[in-house]
Amino acid sequence: MMPMQTLEEIKKRLESAVPGVCVEIVSNDSPCQQRSLLVDRDHGPQVAAWLRRDDALRLDYLSNVTGVDWPEVVTKQKIKVKRKVDGVEKEVEEVVQTRSGGYLEAVYHLYSMELKQGAVVIRMRTGDRDQQNKLPSLTPIWRSAELQEREIYDLFGIVFEGHPDLRRILMWDGFEAHPMRRDYVEPDDYEYEPTPHDSVLAKAKAHYPPEVAP
């Protein structure tokens, strides 16, 4: 068995096979070094179909599909810059804001059962976290995404276009929010439990008359 192609090779071949695609390699600093391919969402299904068909890869098995929520994070950093103030060069402190995140991400782990190789990780990102929360579904290519994409839709709120049966799966149909998002606040429908924890007691007080909840 030939060793699997590196991600760089796959990227190069992908770019020539799918015209117009925009692929990026996402690095991973942890010791396991599992890097991934960030695919632009318009070409997602084409890339997926190519990965599945390509003779050197044959990624016929989609193992794991998951969502990750990246809310927008603004990091402020103070840096010193040299600048001319009134003709004299001075060192001035400036605050630089870097924004990162602000999207939802779907991560796909692909393996090949035929060639016994893997994993190739591809990921797609939505435009933002509210309105542009759409991604193309890969269920028409790998059926194993069917329930897992439904779960992501349910828990993260990514709408998969082209999914044959996109409904809530774990939460009930009338449920509004997406509980796996980082900013999800659980509704205050508390049942009094006899714990001495202060936070629980405070919550219970709001719900029960003082005779019931001490």
Partner: peptide
């Protein structure tokens, strides 16, 4: 350290993985 990882084993019911 920051990073990500997916590992899987052959559980009695099938592929059990943690991401």
């Amino acid at each position: 350290k920051p990073g990500e990882c997916y590992e899987r084993i052959e559980g009695p019911k099938g592929e059990l993985g943690f991401y």
